[in-house]
Each structure stands twice: as C-alpha cells, then as structure tokens.
Design a protein around this nucleic acid. Structure first.
Length: 844
DNA sequence: TCGATA
DNA sequence: AACGGCTTATCGA
C-alpha cells in the first residue's frame, strides 16, 4: 500500500478498475507531489434494487456467478411518500448488474456507472482533501489550509434552513486547490500531400512532440529527418526551450513517455481523440506498447493515464454551459486558434506550407506554441479554468476528468443522485416519475414543436426614452423552484390539503407539507451565490477574483438545473416542474408590471425576468422591490439605469446608453457574427455617434451625422471599394455537407469550395479523387453575394469584383439600419436619394 | 405567398 | 445531448 498514515491526499478521480473489478482511485499526494493510484479500501460491493420480495428474487434462475448475495433494506420512496422495503441484489462484479436487470425485469439504480456509485455510497468527494487513517482504512476529511475564506457568520445565519447542506458542502467552496505539477502536450506527425493524419489509422511517423509545464519549462522532442532542412531559429520562440533530437521514432516515444509519467496533470487540446490514441498506437506498432502510460478507451473515446490525470481542454471549452455562462460566449468556434485568441489574446502560429514540409525550427515553433497556449488555457488568470473544474467537480460529486468531458446535465444528475443516496431516498426510474406526474403539459407552447409554454415578453413601446431604470429578478427560475417548493415529488402531491396551493395559469398544485429535494438543493446553491458570493465579488478585496470564479461556477449549475426538468433525455425529467417554473415566472413579471402601473409608472418593455420603467422615482423603485419580496417571494433588483434607451417595435431588439456613454446593444443585427464586417463597422460608428447624445435636441444633429454615414456607405458599395473580406457573410455549417436538404447560400458556397478542392487534387494526382473532404461540420463558411448563377461565391474563390451583387448589399444596409431608424424616426428611402457629405463623415 | 429550414 | 421565445433570410412548392 502506497498510502502513508496521517498524510494528506486530494481525491482527483475514480475509475472502474478492470483488474480488481472494483473502484480505482486517483489521489494527489500532497507530500510527495505526485499522483498515486490505489484500489478500493472500503470493500464496496456492486448492487441494484428490486421491489419484489427476497423470496421471489431467490426463486429466479440466475446463472452461476451472477448473484453474490440478496438482502433487504429500508429506503424512502419520495414519489409515494412512504418507507419501503427493498430487496438488494449484490453481484460479484459490476458487469453482472445488467444481467440481473435482464432477469429480474424492473430494477432500480442499476444504470448508474459503478465508479459513480462508489462515490455516492462511500461519500468521498472528488476534488477534496483527505488524510489517510490506516487503522480504519478510511479517508478522513482534512480541515487543512483553505483559500483563507469561509462563510461569514451573518451568511451562515441566513442559510440556517439548509443546515445539513451547509455542513455537507461547506468545504467544497472554501478548500484550496493544490499546487500540482502540470504539463501540456502536443504532437505533430508526418504526412503526404492532401492527407490528414488520423488516430484510427496512424500510418505516419511522429515528428515532433512539445511540452510546456507550470514551472515555465518547455521541451521539444524532434525526429531527425535527413530530407528536412533545419531552417532558422524564429525570433520570438521561447529562449529557454530545451530541444532534444532523436534518430528514431522509438527513442522519441520512449523519452515522451518518460516525461509524461513525471506529471500529475496532463492537459491537451483534443488529446482524447488525436494526440494520445495516436501516440499509443505508434508505440504498439514499434513494439514498445508496454512502455506507454496511455489507456485508450475506444468505446468512450477517452484517453487516460495510469497515474496522471488527463484534462482534455477541447472537451471543456466545447461545453455549452462553460462557453456561455463561465466565459460569456467570448469564442464563437471551438478550435484552439479561436479559443486561445479570445481567451489569451494569442493564437496558433500561422503556416504557409504543410506541417510535413516545414523546416525543423518552424515545426518546433508551431508545435511548442500549441503546447504553451494549451497550458495557458488551463491556468490563465490565476488558474481560473482549473479552479472552475475543481469546484464544479466537488459540488456535483463527479470525478474531475469526467467533469471536463461531460455536459452540464451529467453534473446536475450526479449532484441530485448523491443527495438522494445521502438522505436515504430511492432514486426513481424515469418511468416512475412519468407515470406518477404525467407527460402532458398544462400550458400550450407559443412556438410550434415545443413542449410547454415559456417566458413572457412584452411588446416594446418604440422610440427614444430618456432616464429608464431596468429592474430584474435575480436568478428567477432557481428562486421560483426554491420559493414555491418545486420538485418531482412535491408537484401534484397526494395530500388533499395541498390541492388549493395552485400554480398560476395551470392546473397543477404543489405540496405545502414537505420540502422538495430539488427545491432544497437548488435553493441552497442559489442562496450561497446570492447571499455570500455576489456581494463579496463586488467588494474590492484581494479575494475578489476567487469570488467571481466561484459565483460564475454556481451560476452554471443553477441555470441548468431548471432546464434539465424540461428535457426528456434527463433521467429525472419532470415536465410539470418545468411547466410550473415558467408559469410562476410569467405570473411574477405580469404582476410586477401591474404593480408598476398601479404606481403610475410607465412600463416600456419587459422580457422574462426584467422590466423597463420610464423615469421612476427612487421611492417608487423601492416600493416595487419591497412588494416583490413580500408578495411574490422573489427578489427583485435594480439592474441598470440607461441615460436613454432606443426601443424598436421588435422584441429583443434595442440599445441603451449608460450614464458614462457606454452602449449596450441587444439583438440588433449589426452585432451578429454573420453580418459582413463593413456593416458591423458602420453599425459601431452609428452607435458611437448616438452614444454622445444627452437630450432630445442633440438627437437632431446625431440623426444628420447618421444619415451622412449611411449615404457614404451606399456610395462606397456602388464604387466597389470595399474588399471582399469586408463584404463576406459568415455562416456556420452545422451539419456535414452531404446531409443538407436545402441549398441555402452557405451550403452552396461550401459545395463550391469542396468541388474546387477536388478538381485541384485530381489535377495534381493524375485524376485520383481525394479520400478526405476539406469541408467539415461546424466550420464557418464565408461567402460574397454575387451575380453568378448560385447568387453567392465562396470568399476563397472570389476573383472578379465586378461580380459583386451591389443591390443585395444595399438592401442589407437598408434592413439593418431600419431596425435602428424605425425607432429613431429616420426614413431609409430618403437616405438612398440624399447627397453625400464626406466632409462631415470624416469629421465625425 | 407561405411553411420549412437555417 | 438544459429549457422556450423571437427575428431574419432564403428555399422551394
């Protein structure tokens, strides 16, 4: 046993250990600064439940070695609000559980992965610190160092209704994240013309492997290739990079494995699908497979290490919840270059030829940059992403490497399962919930094809409005779930006395006798965020940054926790809960509007959880906020004040100017990524002109300036002085090219590109067709509107500027500015015929 | 012109 | 592989 008495370990991950048919645990050894791998010391056994009696189960014919033991135990069944005797079927190894399920028929908790089950039963929290007690052979929670933060006394008092949860989760928020040896790795392979190296067919040798670690070491391993020139050392390559040359690929790989084994955390960009499977397969081909620390799971498409923890950043940054809530949609595409540019301000090295033709120095430069930016994407801003991973893993009770690879619904599911197990509740099967609560919505969706009705959006009052206050409900849906006690067992409960506790606008009612489990968990996390973290993150203290990370990670979880109840793929799917959440939301915003109008405040607009009030007094705002907390039970806050806001007649389309003249644009096309650059620029110019307006009078001058600008754009279009890059429209190809049924403009452009590539390839390779396509799903396609038969031309194939379809572009200008001018009372047709005033334009 | 698709 | 609501452009019948 490698564990030492009394020493501290961070639990990083649990896995299924195929040798012992039990749990394997990856621990970070704080004293020796390395990862150790042990197998289960708790003697945990795999099992599932049946509601049949033990006698009935024993009478079933199980093949030999399928069942180890049958016993009974008491659990609570939340759906039926009763204690039940369950028959537990214990199996020799986890792989017998599905066999038992097939024979028994209806079983419970049989579809939970074993390594997760182990966490829920043993109640060991991934990401947390423990010390080893050899007498009990147990891990004991370690109350050691912390970030130096803890819940303030006042907040603990406010969270007193959640006593059990506060004790259980307190360390998740406050415990430090260890300082571990971390390395990023990237490989480059040889190739031939027009071929992409693929992990499924690793036929090319590996020519370069680069590492960057968190102690500022950079290493490049290069294969000596006689036919490749050395080139010259690039100027801005890292001066301390250590270069090691190898005569053979085998020697290169041996050294690579040696390095990888030294680190506790190995990070990569797409290492699960390319770098590590490729490395592993090449090692096998060279008969040194036994030296490889890589464990490739082809079915799960994952690569893990025997000791170290692999964090694949491609998977993490791809995650929708991370992209939108944690990083605010900063990057639009999920490739290393785009993400690194958005997050770090530095991208990949751009190449002028194929990788296999690069001189050695250029190859090292390219590969080492990839390793370095990969490392930085895990550690930037004081380790923000790594801290995010640790804290989310702790709260959702999910191994850190699993957290990085899976989507938010898995995190929420894991958190809910853990709490069921901890409280002694049976985890219901999806059918149990559906049978008990029904599958029919009480509301009718507005949009065809949706299952239930969502939020209320008020018709805006178009025009320019000065001094507007925007109030919004903080975390509306999580607040509603908590305040109104929504959970799969409390909605449509069986108590007669609860029947009159109705959900507005529906035929549902909610239990008032028992606290719902989902309401309790979501309410707790929401309150930790609202009561503690949000106020702290606004204070100007040393720990501000940490509070911000923590606050953002909790936002990710609670925002998703409403959504999963409305997703029929979620195992605790409960449509009445989702349906009720939005119904309470509609009720809240509609009643708040009514309240404002009763106070004689003009309501200009409202969307889901916000209302725009025209020139309210401080007293009026205070009264609405107090009323909301008291009568609705939901917290309302003053979110922002606009010096003025311009509303169009369309919903979700407006812009506002803050007192400091900064501009807040919502929904307007000028901001969207598919809008050509020249229009995005023009749009920014217009906003700049409008942002300096202070009064109705100043608007007249601003309108004139805007008119001049638009006329100038018309002229420039007609003279074709914009570059093709300025005019390019960018649309993402969301499916593989072959799957499109419609020949939409971006599909046509993608087809043009593919055709031209095939022709070029054939010309070079005596008529042979290329084996791979250059067009992939998810790619952004850029095209120009032209007078060709397709009406569009891919940007890369655009040669003749006279082909530009000027009319198409002027009508785009019209429609984009119409959104603005509709509200500003400027006539677009008038613009087209007016005179150009260049002097005034350049002067602005 | 209108529903479907993006 | 969390939800629904809203806007715009274009296709194809």
């Amino acid at each position: 046993m490698q564990l030492k008495a009394g020493e501290d370990y961070f639990v990083l991950s649990t896995v299924y250990d195929a040798n012992t048919n039990g749990a394997g645990i990856k621990l970070y050894d704080v004293t020796n600064k390395k990862v150790i791998y042990i197998t289960d010391t708790y003697g945990h056994e795999p099992y599932c439940y049946s509601r049949e009696s033990p006698q009935k189960i024993e009478a079933l014919k199980f093949p030999d070695g399928t069942v180890k033991r049958i016993d009974t135990l008491l659990k609570s069944d939340l759906l039926n609000a009763e204690e039940i005797n369950l028959t537990r079927i214990v199996t020799p190894t986890p792989s017998e559980v599905p066999k038992v399920r097939d024979i028994v028929g209806e079983t419970w908790e049989s579809r939970i992965k074993y390594h997760q089950n182990w966490i829920y039963d043993v109640q060991i929290v991934p990401g947390r610190r423990y010390w080893w007690d050899p007498k009990q052979e147990r891990f004991i929670p370690s109350r050691s160092e912390s970030f130096g933060l803890d819940f303030p006394k006042a907040v603990i008092d406010q969270l007193s209704q959640y006593a059990g949860l506060l004790d259980e989760f307190r360390d998740d928020f406050t415990q430090e994240i260890p300082d571990m040896p971390i390395v990023a790795c990237d490989i480059e392979t040889d190739s031939t013309e027009g071929q992409f190296p693929q992990a499924s067919d690793p036929k090319f040798q590996i020519i370069c492997i680069c590492f960057a670690d968190n102690e500022d070491n950079e290493i490049a391993l290069v294969l000596d290739r006689k036919d490749i020139e050395k080139g010259t050392k690039p100027e801005d390559i890292s001066p301390d990079i250590k270069i090691e040359r190898f005569e053979t690929e085998e020697a290169l790989l041996r050294r690579c494995f040696e390095i990888l084994k030294k680190y506790s955390i190995i990070t990569s960009f797409n290492g699960d699908n390319f770098d590590f499977p490729y490395l592993h397969e090449r090692a096998k081909q060279l008969k040194i497979g036994s030296l490889s620390p890589i464990k490739w799971n082809r079915r799960n498409k994952t690569c893990d290490f025997e000791q170290g923890l692999h964090l694949d950043l491609y998977r993490f940054y791809h995650n929708v919840a991370i992209r939108s809530y944690a990083f605010g949609n900063k990057y639009q595409e999920e490739n290393l270059d785009t993400i690194a540019k958005a997050m770090l301000g530095i991208g990949k090295v751009s190449l002028d030829k194929e990788i296999f033709r690069l001189p050695e120095w250029d190859l090292i430069y390219y590969c080492s940059r990839d390793a370095k930016i990969t490392l930085d994407l895990l550690l930037f801003e004081n380790r923000t992403p790594l801290v995010l991973m640790f804290i989310l893993a702790r709260i959702s009770r999910i191994p850190i490497d699993d957290l990085v690879r899976t989507s938010v619904s898995n995190w929420v599911r894991s958190l809910f399962y853990y709490e069921h197990r901890r409280r002694g509740h049976l985890i219901p099967n999806p059918e149990d919930i559906q049978l008990s609560k029904g599958t029919q919505a009480s509301s009718a969706a507005i949009i065809k094809g949706k299952k239930y009705k969502g939020a209320t959006v008020i018709d805006p009052i178009p025009g320019v409005h000065f001094n507007v206050a925007v109030l919004d409900f903080a975390s509306l849906y999580p607040s509603i779930i908590s305040t109104f006690n929504l959970s799969y067992e409390t909605i449509l409960c069986s108590h007669a006395v609860c029947r009159d506790n109705v959900v507005p606008q529906t035929k549902y009612w909610v239990c008032r006798k028992n606290r719902g489990i989902m309401a309790d968990i979501i309410g707790f996390i929401k309150d930790v965020r609202v009561q503690w973290l949000k106020p702290e993150s606004k204070k100007d203290t040393m720990n501000k940054e940490f509070y911000r990370i923590l606050e953002r990670s909790l936002k990710v979880l609670i925002n998703a926790s409403y959504g999963v109840f409305g997703s029929d793929r979620f195992p605790l799917y409960c449509l009445p809960v989702a349906d009720s959440t939005t119904a309470y939301g509609r009720d809240a915003i509609e009643r708040t509007i009514q309240k404002a109008q009763n106070l004689d405040i003009k309501v200009l607009y409202g969307d889901t959880d916000s209302i725009f009030l025209y020139q309210p007094s401080k007293d009026q705002i205070d009264e609405i906020i107090q009323w909301s907390q008291r009568d609705l039970g939901v917290g309302l806050e003053m979110e922002k004040v606009y010096r003025y806001v311009v509303l169009s007649e369309r919903k979700k389309n407006y812009f506002g100017v803050y007192p400091d003249s900064s501009v807040d644009v919502k929904g307007l096309m000028g901001k969207k990524r598919n809008t050509p650059l020249f229009l995005q620029e023009a749009f920014k110019q217009v906003l700049r002109i409008l942002s300096h307006v202070n009064s109705n009078e100043e608007f007249e001058q601003a309108k004139k300036d805007v008119k001049d600008l638009v006329r100038y754009i018309y002229k420039k279009l007609e003279k074709r002085t914009y570059t093709k890059e300025d005019l390019a429209i960018t649309i993402q190809l969301t499916q593989p090219l072959s799957r499109y049924k419609v020949r939409a403009p971006h599909v046509k452009a993608a087809q043009q590109l593919e055709k031209s590539y095939q022709e070029q390839y054939k010309a070079k390779h005596s008529g042979k067709k290329p084996t791979t396509s250059i067009i992939k799903a998810g790619q952004l396609i850029r095209f120009i509107k032209t007078r060709s038969t397709d009406r569009v031309t891919a940007l890369e194939l655009m040669t003749d500027n006279s082909q530009i379809d000027v009319k198409a572009y002027t009508s785009m200008v019209d429609s984009i500015f119409e959104q603005l001018f509709g509200a500003l009372d400027i006539d677009v047709v008038e613009l087209a015929t007016g005179q150009v005033n260049l002097m005034e334009f350049f002067g602005s």
